[in-house]
C-alpha cells in the first residue's frame, strides 16, 4: 500500500494522487456514510411517509409535520425538555468544573490525579439504568432519605416530591451525566501551563481573578465539549424521564419512543427530524461561543 502510493506520488500524476487520497479516506467515509448519513437520510425520507395503524408506505405528505407542529403537546414537551436540559446543564457544569479543578490544580502528583480520576469513573462500571433505578428505593415514600429525615425529626410527613417528580428526574440526570462534564474539562485543564498561573499570581492576581481570567477562558473548549455531551444526552433521553418521573412527565424522547411503540414510524421520524434540527441549532449556537477547532 505504502509503496504503491509512493510510486504514484513519484509519478506525481494529479488524478492518481486524488484517487489515492480518496482511497485513504474511504474507510471513514464508508463508516460515516453507512452509520450516520444513510440512517439520517432514511429517517428524513420516512418522515414524509403515510401510515395507518399497522402499516406505513412511501408517500410524500406533510401531515406528520403538520400534526407535530400544530399540537400543543409538542410545545409543552419541548418546553419541559428545555427545562430539564437547562437545569441539568447548570448543575453538571458547576459540579463538573469544581471536580475537574480540584483534580487538576489541587491534587499534586500525577499518579494521584489518575487514581482519583478513575474513582470518578467507578459508577460507570454499572449500567446507567441500574444507577438510575437505585435512586428509587432511596427516594421513595418509605425510602432511606425520608426515613432518615423523619428520624432526625426534620420532617413529620414523608416528602412526596423526592420521587416521581421533576426533582427526581434532574437529580438522576445530574448524577448520570456529570462525568461527561468532568472528563473534557479535566482534559483541557491538564494542558494549562502552570507557569501561566504563576505569572498571574506574580502579577498580583487574586485566586478569583486567576480563575476568571486564566483558567475559565483556557478551559472553555472542555466546558463546551462537556456541554455538548450533556445537552445532547438530556435532549435525547427517554428512559430516565420515564422512570424517575414515574411516567408522569414527558420528554421529546419519550414521545418518539411512544410513537415507535404504537408503530407510527413516520410520525416518530418526523419527531426525530425536528429534535435533530433543534439539537443541531443548539449546538451551532454553542459553537459560536468557542472555536473548538482553534482551541484544541
Amino acid at each position: 500500500m505504502v509503496s504503491i502510493s509512493e510510486h504514484i506520488l513519484l509519478k506525481s500524476d494529479g488524478w492518481r494522487a486524488t484517487f489515492t487520497s480518496w482511497l485513504q479516506l474511504s474507510p471513514i467515509i464508508s463508516i460515516l456514510g453507512f452509520f450516520l448519513v444513510l440512517p439520517i437520510v432514511a429517517i428524513v425520507a420516512v418522515s414524509f411517509w403515510a401510515s395507518t395503524e399497522y402499516s406505513y408506505h412511501p408517500a410524500f405528505i406533510f401531515e406528520n409535520y403538520g400534526y407535530l407542529l400544530s399540537s400543543k403537546v409538542t410545545y409543552s414537551v419541548y418546553l419541559k425538555t428545555f427545562m430539564f436540559t437547562g437545569i441539568t446543564w447548570f448543575f453538571t457544569l458547576i459540579i463538573g468544573f469544581t471536580v475537574a479543578y480540584f483534580l487538576a490544580f489541587h491534587v499534586r502528583t500525577l499518579p494521584m490525579q489518575i487514581a482519583l480520576f478513575l474513582v470518578c469513573t467507578i459508577p460507570f462500571w454499572t449500567s446507567n439504568i441500574i444507577r438510575m433505578i437505585s435512586w428509587i428505593p432511596f427516594l421513595g415514600r418509605n425510602g432511606i432519605a425520608n426515613d432518615t429525615l423523619i428520624s432526625l425529626g426534620w420532617i413529620d410527613q414523608p416528602l412526596e416530591w423526592l420521587l416521581f417528580s421533576d426533582f427526581a428526574v434532574i437529580l438522576a440526570f445530574v448524577h448520570l451525566f456529570t462525568l461527561f462534564m468532568i472528563v473534557p474539562i479535566f482534559n483541557t485543564m491538564m494542558r494549562i501551563d502552570h507557569s501561566l498561573i504563576e505569572a498571574a499570581r506574580d502579577a498580583g492576581a487574586s485566586g478569583l481573578q486567576i480563575l476568571t481570567n486564566v483558567i475559565i477562558p483556557l478551559s472553555k473548549p472542555g466546558i463546551m465539549i462537556g456541554s455538548i455531551f450533556v445537552v445532547t444526552l438530556v435532549m435525547g433521553d427517554f428512559i430516565t424521564v420515564r422512570f424517575m418521573s414515574g411516567g408522569q412527565s414527558a420528554s421529546v424522547g419519550r414521545i418518539i419512543s411512544n410513537e415507535i411503540g404504537l408503530l407510527q414510524y413516520p410520525a416518530a421520524s418526523a419527531s426525530a427530524v425536528v429534535l435533530l434540527l433543534t439539537v443541531l441549532i443548539m449546538i451551532s449556537v454553542m459553537m459560536r461561543f468557542v472555536d473548538i477547532r482553534k482551541e484544541l
Partner: peptide
C-alpha cells in the same frame, strides 16, 4: 396519581413499596 406504570415489574414495585 403517584406514577404510571408500563411494565409488570413496575406495578409490583409500586404496590410492594407502598408508593
Amino acid at each position: 396519581f403517584r406514577a404510571f406504570w408500563k411494565t409488570f415489574d413496575e406495578s409490583v414495585n409500586l404496590m410492594a413499596s407502598g408508593e
